[in-house]
């Protein structure tokens, strides 16, 4: 049995005086113990909402969540607030996008680490402090004992993200969700943080859901990748298959818009044209159709179903990229 089984997860935001907005639309994926699964897609496709729904952190009012999120067999969506609080931080950890705003500015780092230890591991404050120093050390923060009494503003962005990772992993959760953990950091720090995450989840045997818009991150980290578009999974594949042979025109577009060092001089990058604003609703056809170079008439009239194309791959497309063409973009 998978550690996490997400089935037909949908999130609909109801807004006063407006049409309800479906941010996540019947998303399904599995995460095996210790596995790293990527959720990839451009801004606004529903990545964060998916992760918040799994964590039970969506606002209670205005957000309707349906489907199921089974974690070790129990449907998290059915749990009471208290049961969910018991699991968050202990079984499920989360690292957020912006380390600058994700730590409480007015309490010391130490307390922000120890409070989770006190809560879930019944540690007295003193013992938790020792443990917190070890945790900070483990995530590569130098001079951890001194850092415990410092405040977030005294740490650099990279250090703060390390601290947040230490907090999320403090109770050795079986699942860690990282929502664009490197987006707010500069490139060299990004690489360090990714390497750190990779090492930690391997050592602890923690499963990781890696959320990103950056295929480079996916290439270095993930075993399996789900590509999201406008709230739906449009392609799912093992990492090397996705990079070796992207079949959905959107995935293909994403991969061809990555600059490559070995590309012949003068070769142009091919960005995906248009923006999410051009989307048509999934209920009418394929949301990506208006931006899709392969679009046919059927694409704007019939909603494509998700098909199993063999090798554990899923695809939602009327006119996928042909395998021969797909192989040309190989980058990883």
């Amino acid at each position: 049995m998978a550690l996490l089984e997400v089935r037909d997860l949908s999130v609909v935001f109801e807004r006063k005086g407006e049409q309800p907005f479906t941010a996540v639309d019947k998303v399904s994926f599995d995460v095996e113990p210790g596995q790293t699964v990527g959720l990839v897609g451009e801004s606004g496709c529903g990545k964060s909402v998916t992760s918040l729904a799994i964590m039970g952190l969506l606002p209670r009012r205005g957000a309707k969540v349906s489907g199921s999120v089974r974690f070790e067999g129990a449907n998290l969506l059915d749990l009471s607030d208290k049961e969910m609080r018991d699991r968050r931080g202990r079984d499920l950890g989360m690292v957020f996008q912006d380390p600058l705003t994700s730590l409480n500015p007015v309490i010391p780092i130490g307390l922000q680490v120890t409070e989770v230890l006190e809560r879930h591991r019944d540690m007295p404050r003193k013992k938790a402090m020792v443990e917190a120093a070890e945790l900070l050390d483990k995530v590569g923060i130098p001079d951890p004992t001194r850092r415990l009494s410092e405040y977030p503003h005294q740490l650099s962005g990279g250090m703060r993200q390390r601290a947040l990772i230490a907090i999320a992993l403090a109770c050795r959760p079986r699942l860690l969700i990282a929502d664009e953990p490197t987006t707010a950091l500069d490139v060299t720090i990004q690489a360090q943080i990714l390497a750190l995450l990779k090492e930690l989840v391997r050592d602890m045997g923690t499963a990781l859901v890696m959320i990103t818009h950056d295929l480079g991150v996916v290439a270095g980290l993930c075993d399996e990748v789900n590509v999201l578009y406008a709230g739906r999974v449009v392609e799912k594949a093992q990492r090397h298959e996705l990079f070796g042979q992207p079949r959905h025109p959107y995935t293909y577009g994403l991969l061809s818009s990555i600059p490559r060092l070995d590309a012949p001089r003068g070769e142009k990058l091919v960005p995906i044209k248009g923006s999410v604003a051009d989307n048509i609703p999934w209920t009418q056809g394929c949301a990506f159709a208006p931006r899709c170079p392969n679009a046919l008439d059927v694409c704007v009239n019939v909603t494509p179903a998700q098909e199993d194309i063999g090798g554990g791959r899923l695809l939602r497309c009327h006119n996928p990229v042909r395998p021969e063409v797909a192989e040309e973009v190989t980058t990883a």
């Binding site: 968050r88 931080g89 705003t101 994700s102 730590l103 409480n104 809560r119």
Partner: peptide
Amino acid sequence: NEDYVRTAESKGLLGTV
């Protein structure tokens, strides 16, 4: 609405804390 409150929630802390 601050991110750090969401972080606190993600740690499973008790409501009173």
